[in-house]
Design a binder for these strands. Structure first.
Lengths: 233, 233
DNA sequence: GACTGCTAAATTGTATACAGATCAAGGCAC
DNA sequence: GTGCCTTGATCTGTATACAATTTAGCAGTC
């Protein structure tokens, strides 16, 4: 049943996308060994392309590889979460500088419109996944305005890694009757002012604010992870 | 001739290391197709582990994969070099903040000793590869003092990507009778002062200074790349 | 000469086979 | 009961085979 070259399907990239989405959603438990045969059957491919996809995840730090023992889901320690939030600061602060200098008024207007829309949806939704998506959309959109693909790519990888933590964080924020929309609006106003250094500082303050809650959020996240009805997406 | 599991050799990781070193040294010409059979023979392995290693490089952006057509060496455009230098600024500026806050006097003293040593070696050597190694050592060492593995890992990947450009840049700097040692010493002095924001600014100024020469350096680099006796490393 | 269609060679894509390592469980000695 | 060895089952590591596709070379045509 040799299936052979199917270039337009691009099995490895498809598998990679599926695995990364699963990893971002913590479908694999931290430290858990990944059984290649089982997983390949579940994804409808053979072990060869699966291993190729897993090796991409190794390079990005989602998965660990131990020689002779296979692939393991990498776990998120408290310190690693701290490091990832700091990396987020590094990238987003630099990106927002670039956005401040380069973004057109129309582009900033589009972001504000998006924030208005998100603000309305925030009021309605209780789905923590959706909360996280709306929040993430603002950050990725703004970072995209720096017009730097490298920064954007690095940020997406970091977001995938801390998505679960952020989901828990934003949910607990909402439970306290607050959202990040107002913070985002403040950052956007500084960007509008054209002061790149101030925009960077505003972004830093915002992310540090969230990072301070991360250590608490991760505990909630882990509790969910092992709960019978854990977060799905 | 099934060679089977040899966990302590860890073929894929070995291949990955070799390939990454070759990619950093621009052993593959930009845009060039990578022939799997030939390369696997050259590296003494079969295609399966080679493809796994190549997939790691895809995830890190050293190599591109086109479905049905194989792996291609990714080329370094002028704009991508600019983006990578900006990513360098993002990471190193944040890291030097951390280093300023967290590094001990002894650790800073060790870096200074290293600078002294490099300074002496700079005077003797004309090997551009060695120049680049000495320069890189300072930056990686300082970034390491932030005690953030994520930042350090990201920086190493960026350095591997722009190594060729940096080699050309530092060589032309040396040809003009200058080195980066003095700039590094200035940055270190600001770190010593304990002012994190100032340290970040000093690092930014230093890297922007080099980035300004990068576009010129890349032209030199490409000339070398296609010269009969190109840079070897 | 440039373009198109055909054919053969080269190359990729992935399933599969199997060697050898790891892991888990049970038995044995202490 | 605890620790160690043995042993069988399980799983990983990689070579290989072969289908399908891309690529290159070559005529023939406009």
């Amino acid at each position: 049943m040799t299936q052979a070259a199917k270039p337009h399907d691009d099995t490895v990239s498809t598998l990679y996308g599926q695995l990364r989405a699963q990893a971002a959603a913590f479908a694999f438990k931290p430290g858990e060994r990944i059984n290649e045969s089982t997983l390949s059957r579940a994804l409808g491919a053979s072990r060869t392309p699966l291993r190729e996809a897993l090796n991409r995840l190794v390079a990005e730090g989602f998965v660990e590889f131990h020689a002779g023992r296979g692939f393991f889901c990498r776990d998120l320690s408290d310190t690693r979460i701290g490091h990832l939030y700091q990396a987020r600061i590094a990238i987003e602060c630099e990106a927002v500088r670039g956005a401040t200098l380069r973004a057109s008024a129309a582009q900033l207007h589009a972001i504000e419109a998006e924030l208005d829309e998100s603000g309305r949806e925030y009021a309605d939704t209780t789905d923590p996944i959706r909360l996280m998506e709306l929040d993430e959309r603002f950050h990725l959109h703004l970072t995209g305005l720096s017009r730097n693909d490298e920064l954007l790519g690095l940020l997406k990888t970091i977001y995938d890694k801390i998505r679960f933590v952020r989901t828990a964080d934003l949910r607990s924020l909402q439970a306290a009757g607050r959202t990040t929309t107002e913070n985002h609006r403040e950052v956007l106003n500084v960007v509008r002012s054209g002061d790149a250094a101030a925009a960077s500082d505003a972004m830093r303050a915002h992310i540090e604010d969230r990072a301070r809650h991360a250590s608490q959020a991760v505990r909630l996240a882990y509790a969910d992870l092992y709960a019978p009805q854990g977060l799905r997406a």
